[in-house]
Amino acid sequence: MQNVPVAHFEWRLTVLSTVAIVALSASVPRCKAIDANCEAIHEVDLRKDVVMTKEELQKTANEVRKGIVTAVHAAKSGHPGGSLSSADIFTYLFFEEMNVDPKDPKKADRDRFVLSKGHNAPGLYSVLAERGFFPKEDLTTLRHTGSYLQGHPDMKHIPGVDMSSGSLGQGLSAAVGMALAAKIDNKDYRTYCLCGDGEIQEGQIWEAAMFAGAKKLDNLCVIVDNNGLQIDGPIDEVNNPYPIDKKFEAFNFHVINIDGNNMDDIKKAFDEAKTVKGMPTAVIAKTVKGKGVSFMENKAGWHGKAPNDEEFATAMSDLEKAGAV
């Protein structure tokens, strides 16, 4: 166990009253807080008590990627490409940004998350497992008959899933409803919604965006995973949604363009979003589809395909190497 504040990385340092130590094994969602004699005193929830370093978040994102590949390989189907492109955003949201508690997934005042691009369920499930909402071993039951890990998010059976989703275009409306509920009740929880850049071709996205802008839902943060590819090819060839940022601006959103695979950028965007008053925020996150797995990167073909055994071994090897850095 070691404390690793990183000099060039201007984040809040790891803090706990006396000695706050984070397990560098980022695969552990909770870690032992230890006293001055290096004795474990109790389990702490990383989100509540400890701010993770950039390196820890990156390592965690790498673990999330391993979970994605493992789950999709075991399912022999599923959507690795977009799950991998979103892995850094998933990780930052669930480990750093959002007020959620794996021990109390339905906590009334928790921040909400809606995966509007529901086919990236492997990404969501992997980060939820990593965060401790359910056992990581269960990821290999993804899409299996009888498993609670349905092909698309199912709020009825999966701890940590706030909304069932998967039919593209519908999740953002539900997120808007959650943000509206917070306004009605004068609650300060925030709602986050991850959309795909192909998904925003759906008209309902813009119905929801219009309402969110018109009602000044500044407790809503939409993230568009702009990996540039959809099933039939590059998004600008299939049905060009660009400029995405200008469109959200026109719908009265505060817009932030970032590199969605860069933890510094992600942190800055979510910090900025919280300061915005009177309008919702859209984070347009430029990402690499298949990020982290060499042969999947920037390949539309890996949108919805599982790796075979050989490809799985290569993918895990890529991720092991990335994690060892």
Binding site: R112, V114, M155, D162, M163, G169, Q170, G171, L172, S173, A174, A175, V176, G177, M178, A179, L180, A181, A182, D185, G203, Q204, E207, A208, M210, F211
Partner: peptide, 16 residues
């Protein structure tokens, strides 16, 4: 925008 109305209602219902 009926489709959006339906989704908003779903989100509101998840919040009680």
């Amino acid at each position: 925008a009926e489709a959006n109305m339906t989704g908003i209602a779903a989100g509101l219902a998840t919040c009680g």
